[in-house]
Amino acid sequence: MSILEQRYRWVLRLLPAAYRAEREEEMVTAFLEGARRGKAGMDDQRPRWMEIASVATLALRLRLGGPGEPPRSFLWGEAVRRAAVLGLVFWTTVGCLSATLTLYTYGILAEGPPDGLTMGIGDPGSPERLRHVLADLAPLLWAASLGALVLGRPLTAKAAAVAALVVPYVLVPPALSVGGWEIAVRWACTLFPAAVTALALMIGFHRDAPPPRLSRGRALGMVALPAAVGILLSLVVGVLDSLTRAGTVPMRLLMQVLMWVDMPGLACVALTTVTVWCVAGRRTSRRSSAPVALAAAILTVPVVLARTAILHPGATDSITGIINLVGCVQLGLLLMSGMTLVVMGARALRTATDGDLTELRGQHG
């Protein structure tokens, strides 16, 4: 066995054992036939990056299987795909909340606050102001991604999700160099939940597991419901903000509400709700809730990091104290939910056999 052949076999270990046992020799032979000989024959060669990428892509597609794949692969595949759908629904709510608040903040929907303070960033009509407005409206692309996915257009959904993730920071780059590595780490943690959703969408819906194509009416309803929730939440925040400026509502109450309607706070509420649904559904149909439990467990990890990123232990002022207190409560809920979901998912994986997943196989997407 040449050194190059050993390297190819090492790369092929990315594939599931059953697939490798059936196809490894054929694949190694094909790779060696296409290899270029160097000065020392095959011993000074390495697998090409495109070959490694193709094997890694195949391994992901097999391990996140679609209908007809082994039960364990199918369960993981459904978990990642449902993580993508749950994430897109959540980010549609956040995007509509952010967009509505942006229209209010910059005086597009209504006039400025009663005290006449200048709202938004940049002078009216300036390019800087335009960039910030567009960056704050860019999260609406999550709704476009969700709509494209449920209409059976995964490539459009993936492109819209990547744009929603990247465009805001292209328009308004984060000032990471000002605060050093600590600010950069906190920023990365807050970006992580959206990145996990986009990644789950990219790898979950491959050619062997296309998304279900809903009718236009059902697809519109699936996008409109989380969008309406986001708009409703923005109205609540706007009313509380106006009452706070008028002195009717104390600032402490406003801060507590804002901690529950920011991204990690809303994610905490959503994941806790999903956990309760999974626990309640387990009594009637454990198999149908298994991929949802795994999906929510996947999404819980980045939310914990995002919530932790805004905490400031040791701070003594009252506002930061409220942030730390509410944040710790949310972290407790997230950790309890995450542990419950992991236990449910682990039990489902242990019982992932053909007989156990017969019902689940008919529920793709």
Rank of each mutant, 00 (worst) to 15 (best):
E5L: 12
A309I: 07
T29P: 04
T275R: 01
I319P: 00
M344Y: 05
L75T: 11
G221M: 02
S285F: 00
T92N: 13
A35P: 14
L97N: 09
E359W: 03
L271P: 04
A198P: 02
E359S: 10
R216N: 10
G179K: 13
L214R: 14
G362F: 08
S289T: 02
G281K: 00
P250E: 05
E128L: 12
E22H: 12
F205R: 01
S73T: 09
P210Y: 07
L271S: 00
A175K: 14
A293P: 01
G68S: 07
V55W: 00
L254C: 05
V55Y: 00
P211D: 08
A188I: 11
T156N: 04
G180C: 05
A198T: 15
L101Q: 01
S2Q: 01
L130T: 15
I323P: 08
R82P: 02
L349M: 11
V196I: 13
L294D: 01
V229F: 10
R20Y: 08
A246Y: 02
Y106S: 06
T300I: 12
V342T: 08
G327K: 11
L4I: 06
V170W: 03
G65L: 07
V274C: 01
Q330E: 12
P113G: 13
L305Y: 06
A163R: 06
I121W: 07
L32Y: 10
V166K: 01
L12H: 03
T273V: 08
I323W: 09
A30C: 05
R213C: 15
A309G: 10
W49F: 04
R287D: 13
T300A: 09
P302H: 02
L220Y: 02
M202P: 00
G95Y: 09
V276D: 01
